[in-house]
Design a protein around this nucleic acid. Structure first.
Lengths: 117, 117
DNA sequence: CCTCGGTACTATGCTTCACGTAGTACGTAG
DNA sequence: CTACGTACTACGTGAAGCATAGTACCGAGG
């Protein structure tokens, strides 16, 4: 991983997980699969599980075990009240940041015309 | 600093500095002052100087000294060609991320209005 | 002169978190 | 009984934001 890309993801991944769980509870593996589909995120198990563990110890999610049709038992995560609160905080700050960046970039000359690599 | 807020800023601050310097060269202290004005960033000297140092060792900026009217000599930073390249990369990835988050948040449930699943 | 405050930068250590790698365990198909 | 998909855990590394502290130059006021 090109390292600086990882840096951008800091904190953002928790926001993504929270927003996913806000829609519907899910188990770790499932969340990993969903996040993998999202372009630009390219996330791995070893990143997601620690996030979920952290969120559990901080009380943002409730956990219960559930049997799996083909594998070891799943740990299903469900957003708690404080988790939804957290999500709102992160979303709000994220919006603030994106707005700040937009502002900073728009006042200035040209922005990067579509060139990703 | 509430800790999780700092995490969001990862990498983003370099992007901000690059975009500032793209408009006009400037010295460290000046860049700090400018970034401080930006809402939601709330940045400090001890964060900015290391970024500038890093950018220098990686060749993204050229540095020259300049006398100050009221203080020790200033170190003036100017974006290099590879610095502009870097800026484009970061901007592109940032755009990708914001789009991904927008997508993730909008495709799911509601943004604000009550519309349960 | 000497201190105080603003300017301008440097140095050190802490902490958080993404990620790589590896390992455990369950189930089914061949 | 091997191999593969599922599902999770554990450990170590490294990057970077930040707090704190220190250095140094300058002008104004007592």
């Amino acid at each position: 991983m090109t390292s600086w890309i990882s840096q951008f993801r800091r904190g953002l991944l928790e926001l993504c997980v929270l927003n996913l769980l806000q829609v519907q509870e899910g188990h770790g593996y499932q969340i990993v699969q969903r996040l993998k589909e999202i372009d630009g995120l390219d996330i791995r198990e070893s990143t997601v599980y620690p996030i979920l563990a952290r969120m559990k110890t901080e009380g943002f999610v409730a956990v219960r075990d559930e049997p799996s049709p083909g594998g070891p038992p799943r740990r299903v995560f469900r957003l708690s009240a404080s988790g939804r609160e957290r999500m709102r905080s992160l979303n709000a700050y994220w919006d603030l940041l994106t707005e700040a960046v937009d502002q900073l970039r728009s006042g200035r000359k040209e922005a990067s015309e579509g060139n990703l690599s």
